[in-house]
């Protein structure tokens, strides 16, 4: 099972790295917001896998908080972009 957790975590980390490249490249602010959203999702997934691997339930509230934060952050940022572009 340890091998399985290792493989899963490696895949999620690889996905997070690819997302990070998109986050750094942009080219528009919207792409960065989207990449951040996906990145937080991958952090949630990795936390869940790590929790399962160590059979440790202390990180469960972290999952809930991250899910909430990702939503509020992305929506707020997208709204700000929309307002800023509308000003021009």
């Amino acid at each position: 099972m340890t091998l399985l957790y290792g493989i899963t975590l490696a895949m999620i980390v690889a996905a997070a790295l690819l997302t990070l490249v998109r986050l750094l490249r942009g080219p528009r602010a919207l792409d960065r917001i989207m990449a951040l959203d996906v990145l937080v999702t991958m952090v949630i997934a990795a936390t869940a896998v790590g929790m399962t691997a160590r059979d440790d339930t202390t990180a469960v509230p972290v999952l809930v908080v991250l899910a909430l934060l990702a939503f509020i952050g992305s929506v707020t940022a997208a709204h700000l972009i929309e307002k800023r572009e509308g000003m021009r």
């Binding site: 899963t8 999620i12 690889a14 996905a15 790295l17 690819l18 528009r28 999702t41 991958m42 997934a45």
Partner: peptide
Amino acid sequence: TAVLFLGGASFCLLGALGLLRFPDTMSR
């Protein structure tokens, strides 16, 4: 668990690959 984890991780990886490779915001 093994099947679900590997499936989920594959979806994460493929999604990230699409996020990196697709040409515009809508397809990403």
